[in-house]
């Protein structure tokens, strides 16, 4: 029994339902996936509690939801770590298995990450420099420690609202800037209330399915293997499809009339300085280990050299 915030009918939920059918067939009905889409089981925290008492067994969520089980899973969320998807792919090729292993040690069996795309700043007035952003009324999700910390490191004074209040607040002008992957900005219609998108991959996002070991361990070894095979194949496919959707969504927001603005080299350097400071703080607070950060940087250095 698996909960997700993704609504019914999305590529991910449909893909997972198909995988469920395949698993049921291959295990002769011993293993079934029941999906609760659209957040009907509550938010990440409520779902985590329901998993604890056994009402649910797993969830598909943003990587951050599993950070408490394995802190280094946040390594992919380091701000401004990547310049493009090639770098993401190079890093993920090496670190995905690592993250999967770490999560399993922390109690979550997972089957591969799903691309969530880069989050970009979208705003009413063009945002090139950090000061430009500081002049905007920037939205951040309420109840989200990680983004609150990041805002502090970037010396931003954001406006915290629940996700449901974002669209109306954009309409009324209570906020006029946000950072989000283009797919989210499109689905939630946020794009229609801003004029500019800053062409700078602020943050990489990803989702994943975690099934708690407590429940997964109850399956026979053979069934576990089947589930792994089917779901890993499914997630590889979903990852690729999501990537495609994310790329086309970036095109789509431009077609919807958003102007692409780019920071100058000088301005980008400033962003990067603050981002590095934020990352250093994450390491200091033990959110990410230095060793993991070093690995990330090593892979990136190698990749950049190769070009």
């Amino acid at each position: 029994k698996i909960s997700t915030l993704y609504p019914d009918g999305t590529t991910i939920v449909t893909g997972l339902k198909d995988a469920g059918k395949e698993i049921a067939e291959k295990t002769e009905g011993r293993v079934k996936l029941k999906i609760y889409p659209g957040g009907v089981m509550g938010d990440d925290r409520a779902v985590e509690r329901k998993i604890r008492i056994g009402q649910l067994h797993g969830q598909i969520a943003q990587g951050g939801a599993f950070a408490s089980a394995y802190k280094d899973s946040q390594i992919l969320n380091v701000p401004l770590a990547f310049n493009n998807y090639e770098e993401v792919d190079a890093v993920r090729a090496e670190l995905d298995p690592e993250i999967q292993k770490g999560l399993e040690a922390g109690g979550w069996v997972s089957f591969g990450l799903i691309d969530g795309g880069f989050a970009y700043v979208m705003s009413e007035n063009p945002v090139r420099s950090l000061d430009d952003l500081r002049d905007q009324k920037l939205w951040l999700p309420a109840n989200d420690e990680a983004s609150a910390k990041a805002a502090k490191a970037f010396e931003l004074s954001p406006i915290m609202l629940n996700i449901g209040a974002v669209l109306t607040s954009l309409q009324t002008g209570a906020i006029n800037a946000f950072a989000a992957p283009p797919v989210a900005a499109l689905t939630l219609q946020w794009y229609s209330r801003v004029n500019n998108v800053t062409d700078m991959p602020l943050l990489y996002t990803f989702g994943l399915l975690g099934i708690h070991k407590k429940y997964f361990g109850r399956l026979s070894a053979e069934d576990q293997k089947t589930v792994h095979e089917v779901l890993e194949a499914t997630f590889a496919k979903l990852d690729a499809e999501s990537r495609k959707e994310n790329l086309s969504a970036f095109q789509a927001v431009q077609q919807q009339g958003l102007t692409v603005v780019k920071p100058t080299d000088e301005q980008f350097k400033e962003w990067k300085t603050y981002a590095d400071r934020a990352t250093a703080e994450l390491v200091e607070e033990g959110e990410i280990s230095q060793a993991m950060l070093d690995r990330l940087n090593a892979i990136l250095a190698k990749q950049r050299e190769g070009q």
Binding site: A142, A148, S157, P158, I159, M160
Partner: peptide, 11 residues
């Protein structure tokens, strides 16, 4: 009036 908000108030 100050263009900011405190994280802990909402929760």
């Amino acid at each position: 009036f100050f263009g900011t908000s405190l994280v802990w108030i909402e929760p």
